[in-house]
Design a binder for these strands. Sequence first.
DNA 1: CCCCATTCTTGAACGTGTTCAAAAATGAGT
DNA 2: ACTCATTTTTGAACACGTTCAAGAATGGGG
Lengths: 218, 218
Amino acid sequence: MVAKSEQTRQRVADTALRMFRDIGFEKTTMRAIAAEAGVSVGNAYYYFASKDDLVHELYIQVQAEHAALASEALERTAVFAERLKATLHAGLDVMAPYHRFGADFVATAIRPTSPVNPFSGGSTLAREASLDIFRNTVDGTRPAVPKKVRDDLPELLWLCYMGITLFWVYDTSEGQRRTRKLVDGAAPLVARGLALARIPGVGKVLDDVLDLSRSIRG
Amino acid sequence: MVAKSEQTRQRVADTALRMFRDIGFEKTTMRAIAAEAGVSVGNAYYYFASKDDLVHELYIQVQAEHAALASEALERTAVFAERLKATLHAGLDVMAPYHRFGADFVATAIRPTSPVNPFSGGSTLAREASLDIFRNTVDGTRPAVPKKVRDDLPELLWLCYMGITLFWVYDTSEGQRRTRKLVDGAAPLVARGLALARIPGVGKVLDDVLDLSRSIRG
DNA sequence: CCCCATTCTTGAACGTGTTCAAAAATGAGT
DNA sequence: ACTCATTTTTGAACACGTTCAAGAATGGGG
């Protein structure tokens, strides 16, 4: 019977995530989580190597919700700008309850040693899952995006999404209204920008940008 | 006599900065700083509200060095791409000794509550000082950059610099070679991209980008 | 039923950043 | 020289994340 152990793990995770949402990152101490979940501090550490690891748990869950919500919304349109908008808004929808926690999340995630870090660590599962959402967004587009950028676009959009998330973290307007406005404004602009890729002069510069991007990554 | 007090403050700051550079952020404990500087822990806190505040001190100093080094290099050329390259490389030069400390610095700086945060807090002195470096970079350019973007360009470049810094933090290549390559490649590309602003189709999109950027900030 | 290796759980202990009441040093006014 | 309010300094104490030796529960094999 492995269920008992899994049950304890789940109770700790659920308690932690609820407390992150309700009272914020700093007030959610490991002692408080343990007490609330009815286990000892050491026991929580048996299942999660660190407090950051619990943040990782939250990241996984938020991302799964993002994928589900985006996938659903993407069925409704094939127009690139609309699809991008839908994916980005879905991300904001899912993160919304955790806005007050956002800054701490980003500060945690940005450390190279963090299990949540989206950049380093190479092929993190979480990062690939997140990239897949943007691959979906690009792939289902009709008319298709220019061949030239098709391969790199998902990663580029994902990077934009990271930027938007950062903007969102600092967005103190009610309901993060300004971030919504940013998404609404930026999505069609990206689409129009892509169309420019067909202008010869622009295309050359774009080629070089993509070359540089590839050479830096390699 | 106010010098005695200032002397203590300076000794704490110097000790902290040296230890950050030599042994890293985490190993530089407040107790270790105090011991090394020959004061009590509480005394260090009399002058610096937090460990983050000591990071702020470092930020100020690094930035002053960046301004000086960039200003010197900018006297040597009026070509935009060269000026941008010079400013960015100057930044990397100044940060170089602290590379191992970079991740902790960024994680500290990114919190909205941090005294080092470059975004929130509105008109932080440090942020304005940093922006001035890029205003200098743009202003002295001959031929001048397109009127359309002249006002917004410094802030945009500064934002790029933040991005490059982030890249630099994760750059594990020796001497952060890849970041240098990024700067060398990106600077001329930005210059060529600016030239495109004069193409009508591109100009329209650019106008909208700038409009959005302004409306979001306001 | 009992063994015992494995899995799970406990709570005290460590080092950390930070706080604070109290003590010491300082220096301007007499 | 002597106040005494102000500035500076001290070190013990607090809550935190984390570790770990020790013990308790579990469950398959005799």
